[in-house]
Write a protein that binds this DNA or RNA. Sequence first.
DNA 1: CGCTTCATTGATCAATCTCAACTCGCGTGG
DNA 2: CCACGCGAGTTGAGATTGATCAATGAAGCG
Lengths: 241, 241
Amino acid sequence: MFTRRSCAICAGFEINCCKAAAPGQAAATRPDPFDIAQSDHRVPPRKIICREQDMHDAVPVICSGWAASVTLLPNGRRQILSFLLTGDMVSTALLFGSTPNSVVETITAVEYRTFRRTELKSLVFARPDLMDAFARIWVDEKARCDELIIDLGRRTAEERIARLILHLRGRLIARGLVAREAVTIDFPLRHHHIADAVGLTPVHASKVISEFRRRGLLVISDRSLTILDPDGLRRLAELRR
Amino acid sequence: MFTRRSCAICAGFEINCCKAAAPGQAAATRPDPFDIAQSDHRVPPRKIICREQDMHDAVPVICSGWAASVTLLPNGRRQILSFLLTGDMVSTALLFGSTPNSVVETITAVEYRTFRRTELKSLVFARPDLMDAFARIWVDEKARCDELIIDLGRRTAEERIARLILHLRGRLIARGLVAREAVTIDFPLRHHHIADAVGLTPVHASKVISEFRRRGLLVISDRSLTILDPDGLRRLAELRR
DNA sequence: CGCTTCATTGATCAATCTCAACTCGCGTGG
DNA sequence: CCACGCGAGTTGAGATTGATCAATGAAGCG
């Protein structure tokens, strides 16, 4: 079983079915987790966790590390639909047995835990409080989805990349995985991840990031990100011109 | 109260809370609809139905006509997140009181019906069968959202437009609003709607559509769409090169 | 040590945008 | 009834953004 610091904002914890969540700091404020089947996995970087078919009865939650949900097009192009961070459920739609047309790929080493879909579903449905927690996760997921549509449809390369970076940082902060005031944070994404997430080529992403560095906005190096000019970056991310 | 032919696949009917659904053809196969508050509205084309704030306690369902959920950017650009057709719920996330960052604009004249959020929510949650129906709607919505991300991120203007048209047609057919074999269908979208939906400028959308016409794939004119070469269009929509 | 992945940079190309001009149809008000 | 303005579609020219191709070097890893 994994040990983590961040169970308190994990999807599995909010829905209170993750056994790892109970023994630690959570015990005082929470009832015992529901006893539903779960299985734990450890995967190295750059591996595929689950393909379309594997998902029929399993709902995975990321316990640690970074992954991405990516769609592969017949012509070899890739689009990352979302990054999955520590504490993320892979997809809320899985609870209803929808077959995703994407694949989950690890970026760093990843620990994840899968729950039995049917069990998890009946548990969530049986309890309004769990359903509310679940709904919150779902609404978040949808909101990010909409944001990405706007980014891809109507924003420039610079704006997209600036926004991606700020959004990721925001999610990490919201999860308590990064201090709000931290200037430098772990950042395992390669340029090709960024490119695939915002609909650009790795070459162009590299050019934009280099330009950001040149302008003193941020530095990405050695698997870490340093935001030197948060306001400048935010201005860029919000609005062109 | 509105009269319609298509209640059988309306979101409001599936969740069985729309009073209009019961008296007609549905009575035989369905129990009486649940008695929750609803209010009916009629709006002319090119009007905004609901802004962000109006939505606090209302969940609208389109009874007839076409509308679009659109986001307005500070620099004047627009992105259509989804088209809303007869029978569509504006957004499943509304059930959970999420505030959308989009506005619903009518394209044709629209009739819609709003339900009280809290009532609808407790009704759906109380009954697993309704919840399943609701979940299906939600999963559909998310799937279309993901598709759009892929389109905007990784497909050309031609592919995007071809796919949009085929998808819309597919939805209309699935709803029984259009015969599967129909060659010409009602199509009230302006070029700027298409452009805003697939992240292009109206002029470029116009050029692509003209090119489609020149190649004998389809004709859009006089508020109707004729697909002359469905296979050619499908081939184009699937895969570049 | 050799291999692969990754980042960088420059040159050139292609897709799409911007700007502009023109047309058409429609509704409105004089 | 006509003039007018407006929204919409078309088309062309030129500008811009981002893609493609190619070469190079650095870093990680068996």
